[in-house]
Design a protein around this nucleic acid. Sequence first.
DNA 1: TGAAGCGATGCAGTCAATGTAGTAATGTGC
DNA 2: GCACATTACTACATTGACTGCATCGCTTCA
Lengths: 199, 199
Amino acid sequence: MAEGIRERKKRRTREALIAAAVELFQRQGYEATTVAQIAAAADVSTRTFFLHFPTKEDVVLAGGGARVELAVRVIEQRGPDETMRDVLAAAVECMIGEVAGSELATGIADVRVRLMLTVPELQAWMLRRLLDAQRRIVDALCRSYPEEDDVVAVAAQVGALVGAVTSAATYALRRGDPPEEVTAAMRAAAGRTALSWSR
Amino acid sequence: MAEGIRERKKRRTREALIAAAVELFQRQGYEATTVAQIAAAADVSTRTFFLHFPTKEDVVLAGGGARVELAVRVIEQRGPDETMRDVLAAAVECMIGEVAGSELATGIADVRVRLMLTVPELQAWMLRRLLDAQRRIVDALCRSYPEEDDVVAVAAQVGALVGAVTSAATYALRRGDPPEEVTAAMRAAAGRTALSWSR
DNA sequence: TGAAGCGATGCAGTCAATGTAGTAATGTGC
DNA sequence: GCACATTACTACATTGACTGCATCGCTTCA
């Protein structure tokens, strides 16, 4: 059976928490908003908040962690004579497309993006996840290309790619570019960075 | 008058706090060590700790923030017909040299590096400072090259460079490479990334 | 219908971080 | 040599994120 009463209720309180949090963050700022306030606005106890989100930061980008899985899967399903450069380009393109389709298109994401760019605490949180993603991509590449012996070189390539794309996206967003131009900037950054690898 | 009794005492408690913190972190781990324990080991009150360090994280990498200034200065003193690529390469080389000379050479830094690589909280802290450095380098470049109109492209280049170097360094360190090989990996990553820019 | 599972709650407690007020030693002007 | 301002440090109280634990009540399923 698809979804019982219990799961529906749980999902509803979770969504109520997210909505309350975003609304409060927008109105009084991230730091000025306490978890107790969020819980009260969602009409649940403070304790319940932490049953749904491990930290206060997680409520901002709730459910935005599926992109890495996507990229890893692309890498692991590489064709036998695809070069590492091609596979990486495909993986990055895949992630960019995913971002363009979900995060940047909807309006709620706008608030989130602005929060992420302005609140240093959230920046740190995002970077932590980004670093984790980078590590997993490097691991996937090493698994798919066991003949490649220089892990550090692979890591450098991935680091350059991720660094270029995120930096371009950050500055484009900060400048106030519309979604299409942001993705265009990300693509351009990825393309220019990938050019430097020959093998 | 160079240094009165007061300042000397202050410096001594600061160093005592750092020493106690590193020792405790090494023995029982970062998270398992409380600020109160550090303060007690340094024979000062808990409140005093926060008079010397804004956060618990800062005690790990106390005083490692002069490198960015160095790079910014290199960028601002560019010659009239140096290309942006050359200036950036020089700035990065400058920072790599600085790291090689100080951080990687001394033995105490070894504990710090291991902490930074293993404790996610510290990784996030380091990345935050790195992002800040990136932003300041981009700003300096834009000031020194006012004819360059595409800020996003500049940001992408800097992001790629920083991402490649730090990723390479992280993986080299994690693999247990000796200091010389780590700096060599950083240089190689920087060189390979810089190759992709023509203008 | 009864038992097991699970979401939610209240409460007590830990820890990082901040504000306040006060003490004692150091530095400075007379 | 003496008053006076600084300042490093301390004790105490408080906020706010986060956790462990016991418990209550509503689903779910046998």
